[in-house]
């Protein structure tokens, strides 16, 4: 067919083999780098613990041993069971509610006018101070912890989603309209994928804040779960156990954030998989 002509000059612009080789090289290196930095971190911790910088500062090896001890005696799994329930619930509610509210505010003037100032104030305020207030209303159970998670996680998720929706690529909106896209199609097929990088950045911050919220709630109001495990071992001066607990929740939070990033690339922005 006469029209089936691919221009040579355009085809050569596409240096795919070279790019993907380079991408593999670059993708391998961060893993090695990450391992090196973890090893370095563990080494410095070990040395600092041996000096010791403080009598309350255990070595890395003691902390690891304490970690396995806490798993073996069942106290850490039990603590996580208690902490993860409100955390997962609070994070999931914040995600759906936060993205939903953010989209509504991004799309409607009324929603923006009504809700955005509230979330800006909430984000700016030291909301951790509200956590003790939560107990007055909701007691010290699961509800109070879930609310504590949401107080910290929701504002950043709402505000990021709202900003992302406000700054959606105008020319893609016009394109969708010109090809007869409905309002709903525009939201699900253009606005959401276009906004997803910023929404996910908000989710990562929100999830991290949710971890802060649940631990704060357990330290401040409801002595259960991980917060209680930390308090308990501090009161007994079992510093290795205390640090093991703290390190475990940091590691869990980090893993959750990595998982979120994986979902984003996998589901919403497949073109970034190689990048």
């Amino acid at each position: 067919m006469a029209t089936n002509v691919r221009t040579e000059s355009e085809a050569t612009n596409l240096t795919l083999p070279a790019t993907s080789e380079e991408a593999i090289g670059l993708r391998d290196r961060p893993i090695i780098l990450r391992l090196v930095s973890i090893a370095l971190f563990a080494g410095i911790w070990e040395i600092a613990g041996r000096i010791p910088v403080s009598f309350a500062f255990p070595t890395f090896s003691d902390t690891i041993a304490a970690f396995f001890g806490l798993i073996a005696d069942g106290s850490m799994p039990a603590a996580y069971l208690s902490t993860l329930q409100p955390l997962v619930l609070g994070v999931l509610l914040s995600t759906f509610l936060g993205v939903g509210i953010g989209i509504v505010c991004g799309l409607s003037r009324a929603g923006e006018w009504l809700l955005i100032p509230v979330f800006i104030v909430l984000q700016a305020a030291p909301v951790a101070a509200f956590i003790p207030l939560v107990t007055f209303v909701y007691g010290i159970g699961m509800t109070a912890k879930t609310i504590a998670v949401m107080i910290l996680a929701l504002p950043v998720i709402v505000l990021n989603t709202y900003k992302a929706v406000r700054n959606v690529n105008e020319s893609l909106l016009v394109m969708c309209r010109s090809f007869l896209g409905t309002r709903w199609q525009t939201i699900t097929r253009i606005i959401l994928p276009d906004a997803s990088p910023v929404i996910f950045a908000g989710l990562r911050l929100g999830v991290a804040a949710g971890f802060v919220g649940v631990v704060l709630a357990e330290l401040l109001i409801t002595p259960t779960g991980i917060g209680d495990l930390i308090t308990f071992h501090r009161s007994r001066a079992d510093y290795a156990e205390m640090y093991a607990t703290i390190a475990s929740i940091i590691a869990l939070s980090t893993l959750t954030l990595v998982f979120l990033q994986w979902i984003e690339v996998r589901v919403f922005r497949p073109e970034k998989r190689g990048a």
Partner: peptide, 8 residues
């Protein structure tokens, strides 16, 4: 003019 392709 600016193609308006969905990058994803």
């Amino acid at each position: 003019q600016d193609f308006a392709l969905m990058p994803w």
